[in-house]
Amino acid sequence: MSTASVEGPSEPQLGVGAALIEAALSPVRGIFSYIGEHALLLWLALAALFRKPFRLRLFLEQMEFVGVGSLTIIVLVGFFSGAVSAQQAIAALRIFNQERFVGATVGLSLAQELAPVFTALMIAARAGSGMATELGSMRITEQIDALTTFAVDPVQYLITPRIVATVLMMPIMTMVFNIVGLFGAYLYAIFLEHIDLGQFIEQFTYWTDPKDYIIGAVKSAVFGVTLSVAACYQGFNVRGGAKEVGLATTQAVVAGSVSVLVSDYFLIDIFHILWPYKS
């Protein structure tokens, strides 16, 4: 009796303590596990890149899917993003009577931020969702198992080309976004706001450097890694049926977009330490 009365209260206290520690550690463990599994998939995909057989056709198909397939949406979004940026910049600069800086403002923000980030978000929504759906469908219909039965490494066959194609196409699509966005800003500023063309070009060429475009290109390549790994991971690991494929597609877009925005914050910090803004 006495033993029971002493041990009785102590057990729940220990249980609560353990539960609290577990509750505190669980999200941390979850985050590390999440990052670790994605990193492992990336590692396996990269290791497979240097192993025979090399299937160039698969890489070209994926580059076509990620790049050419996304061209229309990138051009559309790029044009209006540039035009809207010019509109907002002019509205703000007009307070100081400095509208002539619109070319520089839009050029800089497009090169370093808007073009890589918006391109990445568009690719995550279009190509990332497509990747997750296709891989998920292949998983639930046993097509991935079928590959394995033919002694084909599914990571090398399916994941490596998608990641490499996205990484290669992202900087190209970002440049397309830059050019079209600047064109949109130019049309709005020159024809609707009657900004002087010479000043628009002069301020743009003075304030923007090749390094701004290099930063944008490097960032977009990193976004290409994060969004394609997120999409491939979600699709490749689907278990269940059509509902789970739909869920994986949603997760791919959400995870891809979040990974782009989070990595953008850290990348821009790193780049500003390496290459401070011109003053």
């Binding site: 219909t141 097509q143 079928a146 002694a151």
Partner: peptide
């Protein structure tokens, strides 16, 4: 695996 051939439940043909 070259000794084996597998016919899947729903054929698992590549779409």
């Amino acid at each position: 695996r070259r000794k084996f051939g597998m016919v899947f439940q729903y054929a698992a043909l590549f779409d």
